[in-house]
Computed example of a mutant assay.
Amino acid sequence: MRKASRLFEIIQILRIADEPVTAARIARTLGVTARSIYRDIGALQAMNVPIQGGRGIGYMLRAGFDLPPLMFSIEETEAIVLALALLERTGDAALEQSAKRISQKIAAAVPPPLRQALAADTLHAWGAAARTGSGIDLAVVRAAIRDERKLAIAYRDEQGRRTERTIRPIALIYYPEAANIVAWCELREDLRHFRADRVESGAPVEVFFKGEGDALRRRWVSSWAVDRSVAETGAA
């Protein structure tokens, strides 16, 4: 998580808390060390964000401090809540946790009547979660897409054949049956889709493809028209 995003998240965590929150607890939520949180809180205090407390007792945000609000209608808010509920069907654990935090922030920000309506649990998204397997964390894939960083994966295709590949991930598609990683495959020298539940292992490598992601995505999108044309004409 980039520092700017982390500072914003710390403010939000403290904003919705009803008791002091320790640096260790914030660190666990954001996936960083407590030492980083101490530095971040010091930086926020230097920017005149009214954070009170200290090591060992926890931190709180002084009443009255707030960020500029986003104003949504009740229908818009319900659309967001339902979209967040649908994230549970992606099988992406990190996105599910982010959805819960967003729901808490929405509940803390909206007026009391709307907060009561959201708390009534009137919106639900049921259905089986997409299969992701345990070979790769989709949060790692999303970070690699953002950072334009290559991944080394071990992949087993539908015939059971196993290959070792280096890929340049450019997109994730969350189908009902499984999440698909869209990537340039250096083994095949072409764009390929990899079902996440067939990735047996995967990790980022210290090699980047900076500046190539947008061009690869444009190439991928342009292939959609070709695929549709083939389907319509019945060509093989």
Score class of each variant (00 low, 15 high):
residue 15 R to T: 13
residue 73 S to N: 07
residue 68 P to G: 07
residue 105 K to E: 12
residue 185 C to M: 02
residue 190 D to T: 14
residue 150 K to W: 00
residue 143 A to P: 00
residue 26 I to S: 00
residue 137 D to E: 08
residue 111 P to H: 13
residue 46 A to E: 14
residue 178 A to W: 07
residue 148 E to C: 09
residue 50 P to Y: 11
residue 75 E to N: 10
residue 89 R to G: 05
residue 73 S to T: 15
residue 64 G to I: 14
residue 184 W to R: 12
residue 43 A to T: 15
residue 17 A to W: 11
residue 175 Y to H: 15
residue 56 G to H: 02
residue 128 A to N: 09
residue 137 D to Y: 04
residue 136 I to D: 02
residue 117 A to P: 00
residue 214 D to P: 01
residue 219 R to Y: 03
residue 85 A to L: 12
residue 120 A to M: 11
residue 199 V to L: 06
residue 233 T to K: 06
residue 142 R to M: 13
residue 158 E to I: 15
residue 53 G to S: 11
residue 212 E to S: 11
residue 181 I to T: 03
residue 156 R to M: 15
residue 57 I to V: 14
residue 15 R to C: 01
residue 115 R to F: 01
residue 105 K to S: 10
residue 38 Y to F: 14
residue 39 R to E: 10
residue 77 T to D: 05
residue 41 I to L: 09
residue 132 T to K: 03
residue 52 Q to N: 07
residue 222 S to I: 00
residue 198 R to K: 10
residue 180 N to P: 00
residue 131 R to A: 13
residue 49 V to K: 04
residue 1 M to A: 14
residue 165 R to L: 03
residue 129 A to L: 03
residue 208 F to D: 02
residue 175 Y to I: 08
residue 68 P to K: 14
residue 100 K to E: 08
residue 67 L to G: 02
residue 18 D to W: 12
residue 146 R to Y: 10
residue 64 G to N: 08
residue 236 A to D: 09
residue 156 R to E: 15
residue 152 A to L: 08
residue 64 G to Q: 08
residue 11 I to T: 13
residue 37 I to R: 01
residue 3 K to I: 14
residue 201 S to R: 10
residue 235 A to C: 03
residue 85 A to F: 09
residue 68 P to A: 12
residue 182 V to H: 10
residue 30 L to W: 05
residue 82 L to S: 08
residue 28 R to C: 00
residue 227 D to P: 00
residue 167 I to W: 02
residue 94 A to Y: 15
residue 1 M to T: 12
residue 230 V to D: 02
residue 92 D to Q: 07
residue 178 A to G: 02
residue 59 Y to W: 13
residue 16 I to D: 05
residue 92 D to R: 06
residue 82 L to E: 05
residue 135 G to L: 02
residue 186 E to W: 03
residue 90 T to Y: 01
residue 111 P to Y: 10
residue 227 D to S: 08
residue 59 Y to D: 04
residue 228 R to M: 13
residue 8 F to H: 13
residue 214 D to Y: 10
residue 150 K to A: 03
residue 36 S to D: 12
residue 149 R to C: 10
residue 141 V to D: 03
residue 222 S to L: 02
residue 67 L to Q: 10
residue 225 A to H: 07
residue 194 F to G: 01
residue 133 G to E: 04
residue 210 K to D: 12
residue 234 G to L: 11
residue 214 D to Q: 14
residue 223 S to Q: 13
residue 113 P to R: 12
residue 38 Y to G: 06
residue 145 I to T: 06
residue 22 T to I: 04
residue 63 A to W: 14
residue 236 A to H: 09
residue 78 E to N: 13
residue 55 R to W: 06
residue 225 A to M: 02
residue 88 E to D: 15
residue 92 D to F: 15
residue 23 A to R: 06
residue 88 E to C: 07
residue 103 S to C: 04
residue 90 T to G: 02
residue 90 T to D: 01
residue 24 A to I: 13
residue 46 A to I: 12
residue 140 V to Q: 07
residue 139 A to G: 14
residue 59 Y to F: 15
residue 140 V to S: 04
residue 121 D to V: 07
residue 216 L to W: 12
residue 210 K to L: 13
residue 145 I to Q: 04
residue 224 W to P: 00
residue 5 S to N: 15
residue 112 P to Q: 14
residue 216 L to R: 04
residue 209 F to S: 02
residue 14 L to H: 04
residue 8 F to C: 05
